[in-house]
Write a protein that binds this DNA or RNA. Structure first.
Length: 154
DNA sequence: GCCAACGTTGGC
DNA sequence: GCCAACGTTGGC
């Protein structure tokens, strides 16, 4: 089992929105970055856990935990001309983009702020603390996961 | 809203 | 394949 960090803007879709979904499950669609896609396509597996990270908002940081409940499949929004994620170069025969399903696990009482994460000595590899790293999906090392989880619960 | 740091596009 | 221009992300 692997650990991940997924970013989302809570004004669009936050951890409360995930918790309110039927089955508390939602397709993580709209990823249009190749590196992030490759993580989803090749490495994200059912049972993996992820930190739900809130970006571009008042309380930037890790808001809770979710779990992967379906591995990569073609992201339907790429075929839909009405969608803002429509990709004219993608076709059902030859899809470019994938999504996975994520299911709510828990919401932290308080968001673990990015500013706090940056002060943690254990956290050196995580993309969000590296300058200018803008990936929306990134791996989290097990030791980093443990340290972050403890900090969030503590 | 600013701006740095990327990623993508397209002309050559 | 290079690289300038452009668009986007995301913290502050």
């Amino acid at each position: 089992m692997a650990y991940w960090l997924f970013k989302s803007e809570p004004d669009t879709f936050g951890i409360d929105d995930l918790a309110a979904r039927p089955e508390q499950t939602e397709p993580w669609d709209g990823v249009r970055n190749y590196q992030a896609r490759n993580f989803m396509r090749d490495d994200v597996k059912v049972g993996d856990k992820l930190f739900f990270y809130h970006s571009s908002c008042k309380d930037v940081g890790i808001a809770g935990v979710a779990e992967i409940t379906q591995a990569a499949y073609a992201d339907p929004s790429q075929f839909n001309p009405e969608s803002k994620y429509f990709d004219p170069k993608a076709s059902p025969d030859n899809p470019r983009w994938v999504c996975v399903n994520v299911t709510f696990v828990e919401k932290f009482k308080r968001v673990l702020p990015l500013a706090k994460i940056k002060t943690m000595p254990e956290i050196t590899e995580l993309g969000v603390v590296k300058k200018g790293h803008r990936l929306s999906i990134m791996p989290v090392q097990p030791e980093e996961w443990d340290a972050l989880y403890q900090a969030a619960k503590g």
